[in-house]
């Protein structure tokens, strides 16, 4: 699965960044490395950018970048998806991880 498929509120663990070169390197340098944990805070209107929390800080990436990051779900994504639908993209504390990425 990739981040682009994750609903708002979903937590994930990075498996790998699937592209190299400029984007892949930039994403890796900003903390998307194998084992790092993060969460999707929200997605933008009409497939606009994602707000992602990783290693204790937030960043914005487009869907095209989010589609290059392979992740495994933490917890139940479909529950997060339902919650997101009910809340219309409202993200509430507690769904995300504490932001400490894990490399172990």
């Amino acid at each position: 699965m990739v981040i682009a498929e994750a609903p708002a509120g979903a937590s994930f663990r990075v498996v790998r960044v699937m592209t190299g070169k400029e984007v892949g390197k930039r994403l890796a340098d900003m903390g998307f490395t194998e084992g790092a944990e993060g969460a999707v805070v929200r997605g933008g209107f009409l497939r606009g950018p994602f707000q992602i929390r990783i290693r204790g800080y937030d960043l914005l990436i487009r869907r095209s970048e989010a589609a290059e990051i392979e992740v495994e779900p933490i917890g139940d994504w479909s529950a997060a998806r339902d919650a997101a639908r009910n809340r219309r993209g409202h993200w509430v504390n507690g769904h995300g991880c504490d932001g400490r990425g894990g490399d172990e």
Binding site: R16, G20, G31
Partner: peptide, 16 residues
């Protein structure tokens, strides 16, 4: 994986 990403992962593992 790409070599540039392997290097970043090693650095992050150390820092973590």
């Amino acid at each position: 994986k790409d070599a540039e990403i392997i290097v970043s992962e090693q650095r992050y593992a150390y820092i973590h």
